[in-house]
Amino acid sequence: MKKLFVPLAVATAAMFAAAPIAIAKADYESTMLLVQKIFYFHFATWMAMTLAIAICGVASVVYLFAGSKIADWYAVASAELVVVFGLFGLFSGSLWGRKAWGVWWQWDARVTMATMLVLVFLGYLMVRKYGGPGSEKLAAAMGIFGAATAPFVYKSVDWWRTIHPQTTVMKTLGEKWPGAWYLVLFCSAAFVLLTVLVLTARVHLEAMRSRLDDMYLAAED
């Protein structure tokens, strides 16, 4: 990963530089017009958040059952990313909702459940901060439960009467409007790469902190 980090960072930066230009050049959608362009980043954020939730869930399981410190670093790094991308997604969704539904905030199933997920991972970070010694384990339980409820959040839109677009919208977009579909994929790839990069840097920071702690302990002895 160390060798790949710089090239990946350059590639991601190039993608994020190109994305706004491509989005600006893309065709207007017939009903949402300019506001529809939020969608490219809105969808991509949720993809990045989904990836971060999956990493946090798996890392939490590995940490809880195998006691691997590295897994714990991945879990805390990804939990922070879930909160960041979640808040960004709620913010961009709010802008979208203002145009599509006429209100900044709507208590529909998807919005409520997404907020809940952000709260779960905020709880994860809180228990780590205020739980005292051994709180990493308690946080891992939170990560596992949070990741387990995530699929319900995804399916909530299909099961419940709601005004959020159904998940089938994405499946037919490729046929109906290929230009937008490729752009959505491009933005999602950029956000996923960004997730991987930030995660790597954040895990590296945790590793350094852990080394520093060990050195303190060694110096005290």
Binding site: T112, M113, M116, L119, V120, L122, G123, M126, V127, Y130, G131, L138, M142, F145, G146, T149, F152
Partner: peptide
């Protein structure tokens, strides 16, 4: 006392 509701409510919201 503080952490129980903070952790419990978001997970049990569904």
């Amino acid at each position: 006392d503080v952490l129980l509701p903070i952790l419990l409510y978001p997970v049990t919201i569904p």
